[in-house]
Simulated assay, not measured.
Amino acid sequence: MIPSIFLPEGMGDLVFLILAATSFVASFITVAFGIGGGGVMLAVMATLVPPAALIPTHGVIQIGSNLGRAALTFGHIFWPALPAFTLGSVLGAVSGGMVVVNLPPAWVQIGIGGFVIWSVLGRPPRGVRDWPILVGAVSTFLTMFFGATGLFVATFTKAQNLPRHSHVATHAALMTVQHGLKTVVFGLLGFAFVHWLPFIAVMILAGLAGTMAGKLLLNRIDDRRFRLALDVVLVVLSIRLIHAGVSDLMAG
């Protein structure tokens, strides 16, 4: 029996346990393969968490997950990638918070999925590598509506041609900035995070455990295998995004 303090209104023990396990697995995937955990977490939460709470709570959980990952790999962070990306993220968060109508999620899914596949299979556009302000602004604007834009940010991180540890560390730092700004904006817009804090704390702890387990695998693979695994994960998740978007459009 899960203590009631950890269960938001309407959530049962089984759902809580499924979400905690998902947080562990999602963080394991992200630190071991560089990307993918945020999307996995969002996909599961989307079926189990009320829509109004989905994006805000997912954002806070991802802060904890990414912050823990950045702390464990702190010495590998590529700091020059952060300042301009952070400035762009501020612009994206502010503009996203000012938009009162939701972007059509199906088109967002298709667009991000197609962009990422293009970046993996071809040469990443120069804008991804050289215009971090634009990447930060666009990805943070989209995360206000879509939630998990780690795929988008990963194309910028990947374009830096970093070793595997630096890739994981830098991506974690960038996502911490992005989700942190998003959480601030949702708080200013009136979302009551306090009702979800015990639940969020457990999800973050489960994610930290997954991060520590995933780091063991990260230390056992070489850069070539890491980049291959990263590309495969990116393409698979992008195909899933495109399929979901097309399915939504056809259903509508």
Rank of each mutant, 00 (worst) to 15 (best):
I2R: 04
S4V: 08
I5C: 14
E9D: 15
D13K: 08
D13S: 15
L14I: 14
F16W: 11
F16G: 05
T22P: 10
S23K: 07
F24Q: 04
F24G: 06
I29V: 12
I29Q: 10
T30H: 06
I35A: 11
G37F: 05
G38I: 09
G39C: 09
M41A: 11
L42Q: 00
L48F: 11
P51T: 13
P51D: 12
A53Q: 02
T57K: 06
H58T: 11
V60E: 00
I61F: 06
N66S: 04
L67H: 11
L67S: 11
G68Y: 02
R69F: 08
A71K: 07
A71G: 14
T73G: 06
I77E: 08
A81L: 03
L82P: 01
P83E: 03
A84H: 07
T86M: 11
L87D: 00
V90W: 10
G92N: 05
A93K: 01
V94W: 09
V94D: 06
S95L: 13
V99I: 15
V100F: 14
V100D: 15
V101F: 13
V101M: 12
N102L: 12
P105T: 11
A106K: 06
I110C: 03
G111E: 07
I112D: 03
I112Q: 07
F115G: 03
F115A: 14
I117W: 10
W118Y: 14
W118K: 12
L121A: 14
G122C: 13
G127E: 06
V128W: 09
V128R: 10
D130P: 05
W131N: 10
P132T: 02
I133N: 02
L134V: 14
T143S: 15
L151C: 04
T157K: 02
K158E: 11
A159N: 02
L162D: 03
P163H: 05
A169D: 05
A169W: 00
M175S: 06
T176Q: 04
V177Q: 03
H179T: 01
G180E: 07
L181W: 05
T183D: 02
V185Q: 02
G190L: 08
F191R: 01
V194K: 14
V194F: 15
H195S: 15
L197A: 15
P198T: 05
F199R: 05
V202T: 07
G207M: 09
G214I: 05
G214T: 06
G214V: 05
N219A: 13
R224G: 14
R225G: 14
F226G: 04
F226D: 11
L230P: 01
L230Q: 08
D231W: 05
V232M: 09
L234H: 06
V235G: 10
V236E: 09
S238L: 12
S238E: 08
I239A: 12
I242R: 03
I242C: 04
A244V: 07
A244S: 10
D248V: 14
L249P: 01
A251T: 12
